[in-house]
Amino acid sequence: MATVRTITLPHYPSYPIHICMFRDVTNAAFLRSQLLEANPDFDYAFLDPSMILSPSHLLGGTFLALHASLLSRAKTRTPHSELVFRLHPNNNIGEAYRKFGISDSSTAIIAVKLGLGPEVTNERVSQHLGEHVQGESVNVGEEAERVGDWCDVGKVRKVYKLENPKKKGGKKGAQINGVGKEVDERREMESVILGMITLKGS
């Protein structure tokens, strides 16, 4: 059994989001092969935790993917592939999988399962992932707040082409209001990223 956190997005209460985090994973190659074979039993979004900045980052992409799928506007095959696609700043699906998906050598994984039907329950997801992911399941917290813990902020910044505020000699950012207020870097990044993924493709 894996520790699965089930979250409901405001406004989409009938579609719970099941989130699970693993470390020391040894069979990433197997999981990836199941995705490539489009095995219906492995309909998950397997994400690289180093690319996930925060819960809102993950949930923002999830909301957009779910919304697009429910309105039949998805650009990819499944709602889960749509999630991987939505996280990426441009429209290249392969690139999205390379950047946000897992590789054969991944040792850490965030697994997301959208509750699109009544058969998808916390228990079933927990059981299935526990059986097939070889690694240690980690508690993501009440509100999945630990989802951003393994983030590589530099990598994320690069993918979204965000400038590093520290390199700007303090001219921008918090300085504009005249107060040398310390900015929460991650929060600033998250704010921009949510906007970028919302705007993408339009």
């Binding site: 809102s56 400038e163 300085q175 504009i176 900015v183 600033e188 998250e190 921009v192 949510l194 705007l199």
Partner: peptide
């Protein structure tokens, strides 16, 4: 989004 990228204080876009 442009404003936020440039570090201005405006509301962030969360979805749409």
């Amino acid at each position: 989004v442009k404003c936020r990228r440039e570090g201005l204080s405006v509301p962030a876009v969360l979805g749409g």
